[in-house]
């Protein structure tokens, strides 16, 4: 298979970027998109050019490192990670546009690689639970029903790739943050920090400069883990709950009269 690639090239974060046309020939239809880019890079090295920088790690769809916007779709035409996108999914001889995940909270590193540590800082703000090192409570005192378990697992499956952010016309990170809040706020282990978690994660999300949700639901259409917008409803619900909860204050001292 032969393709014409329109690849985003950007030397550094502050350098202006542009699209560059590259041709790849005799691509195996069974090659993954990243393997096709590897071949392209080998060609570039042989010719003495600068390789195209892009992120990848496990290449089996579980780590969430790969992040390319292919023909305007984060992760490409199918609802899977970029590494699970194969060249057979594209028409032979077609032109493919390859861009990084676009969001102002994801500053460019080089070419197709962006810095998604804003998502890490959202997790830092509330993605933890208190664990006592003393005597443990009886497990039967903290039951997790199969329904709760299912809801939580459906959210905990998030790999944090940031495709939801890249797909959002408003640049919001609601699906990501909603998945974290749904994951931890439904479990007994997450109850001590429940309200604090919702508040702090939403605050961090805003401070990173992500936009707000307008309920288009496009994030859920590109999520490789198929997380639904019900987690956004959960985040809204939890934030509403946390903003109502009064912070504990010391009672006023009584005086005699």
């Amino acid at each position: 298979m032969n393709f014409q690639l329109e690849i985003w090239r950007q030397d550094s974060r502050d350098a202006p970027g542009h699209f560059e046309t590259k041709h790849v020939e005799d691509v195996d239809p069974e090659a993954s998109f990243l393997e096709m880019l590897d071949t392209l890079n080998e060609d570039l090295v042989a010719k003495g050019g600068r390789t195209v920088a892009f992120d990848s790690d496990c290449r089996e769809g579980i780590c969430g490192t790969c992040a390319l916007t292919i023909n305007g779709m984060p992760h490409g035409p199918n609802q899977v990670t970029t590494c699970q996108t194969y060249m057979r999914d594209f028409e032979d001889g077609s032109t493919i546009t390859v861009e990084p995940f676009r969001n102002n909270a994801f500053p460019a590193v080089r070419d197709l690689a962006v810095d998604r540590s804003a998502l890490d800082r959202i997790i830092q703000a509330g993605g933890y639970v208190s664990v006592t090192t003393g005597p443990q409570p009886d497990p039967n005192s903290q039951p997790v029903t199969p329904e709760v378990h299912q809801t939580v697992m459906d959210a905990a499956i998030c790999i944090g790739c940031g495709a939801c952010v890249a797909a959002c016309p408003n640049g919001a990170a609601m699906l990501f943050t909603g998945a974290k809040v749904t994951h931890l706020n439904n479990l007994p282990q997450g109850q001590p920090e429940r309200d604090e978690r919702s508040r702090n994660m939403v605050l961090q999300m805003d401070e990173e400069g992500f936009g707000g949700c307008t309920n288009y639901g496009e994030c859920a259409r590109v999520c490789p883990q198929d997380i639904g917008i019900d987690v956004i409803g959960m985040l809204n619900r939890e934030y509403r709950r946390s903003s109502r909860t009064k912070k504990k204050t010391h009672p006023k001292k009584m005086v005699a009269q």
Partner: peptide, 10 residues
């Protein structure tokens, strides 16, 4: 402000 200008989402 959250998305880079000139690159609207598909």
């Amino acid at each position: 402000a959250a998305r880079p200008a000139g690159f609207p989402a598909k």
